[in-house]
């Protein structure tokens, strides 16, 4: 996957590009909006990482113009502005996602993958978290490299949860997943599936815990020694 990193601070750009390459991306760099336009015209990028504060123009204007282009690749905006800034709200205009500096690389990489998954057909990276791997191509689950068989519902749940590993997936979202599988879903279908999935993962020796966030949803989190007895 080919990314274009637009960042005027050379040191930050260098470090970011390096970190993203470690995550398996191909990264080009641009230091001005003009260079960005030229590169976008000649090279097929899958994703644009754009710092809003560029020296030669307004980043938001660039986003808007870019949007109007045909076959425009998605944009992930990097901003140094605060979350309460009006301009961040303005990102809804055209950016696909944004992150506030300074950020953690794994989080940035995860957001990039999520965007690519939506926009690039056939981009199916393996989803993995701790010692659990979800192979998207053949929908196979492995725990510590040993295949584990799961029922379709549990498979779908796990896919949702591992996509947002470390975050809470609202219960309503998981209910939607189950509804697409069958028309009739009992009120506590999610609870039932979750507890089955939880049991299967534990039996398989997964180093993850399927946590219930009361009143909100569920989260797949890495196991700590304490979790053993509270997660059920």
């Amino acid at each position: 996957m080919k990314l274009l990193l637009v960042e005027d601070n050379r040191r930050l750009a260098f470090l970011l590009a390096d970190a993203l390459r470690e995550e398996g991306f191909t990264v080009d760099r641009a230091e001005t909006l003009r260079a960005t336009s030229e590169l976008c015209g000649t090279q097929p990028y899958d994703l644009l990482l754009l710092d809003l504060g560029m020296p030669d123009g307004d980043g938001l204007d660039f986003v808007r113009k870019h949007r109007r282009r045909e076959a425009a690749c998605p944009i992930l905006v990097i901003t140094a502005r605060g979350a309460l800034d009006d301009r961040v709200a303005g990102l809804d205009v055209g950016a696909d996602d944004y992150m506030v500096k300074p950020f953690e690389i794994p989080e940035l990489a995860a957001r990039c993958r999520a965007l690519l998954r939506r926009s690039v057909p056939g981009y199916l990276p393996n989803l993995s978290f701790a010692n659990v791997t979800f192979e998207v191509s053949n929908r196979e689950v492995r725990v510590a490299d040993q295949p584990v068989s799961l029922a379709p519902r549990e498979l779908d749940l796990l896919e949702r949860l591992i996509l947002r590993a470390g975050h809470v997936v609202p219960k309503a979202r998981l209910e939607q997943v189950l509804y697409t599988l069958s028309e009739e879903v009992s009120p506590n279908a999610v609870e039932a599936s979750v507890s089955r999935l939880r049991k299967r993962l534990r039996q398989a020796g997964a180093a993850v815990v399927l946590h219930t966030a009361h009143g909100i949803g569920y989260a797949l989190v890495a196991k700590t020694s304490k979790h053993e007895d509270v997660s059920t």
């Binding site: 809470v168 609202p170 946590h211 966030a213 009143g215 909100i216 989260a219 989190v221 700590t224 979790h227």
Partner: peptide
């Protein structure tokens, strides 16, 4: 709350 659950769990709180 959803965003803070992982932080809570990493600190062994709920």
């Amino acid at each position: 709350v959803g965003e803070l659950v992982p932080l809570a769990l990493s600190r062994q709180r709920f």
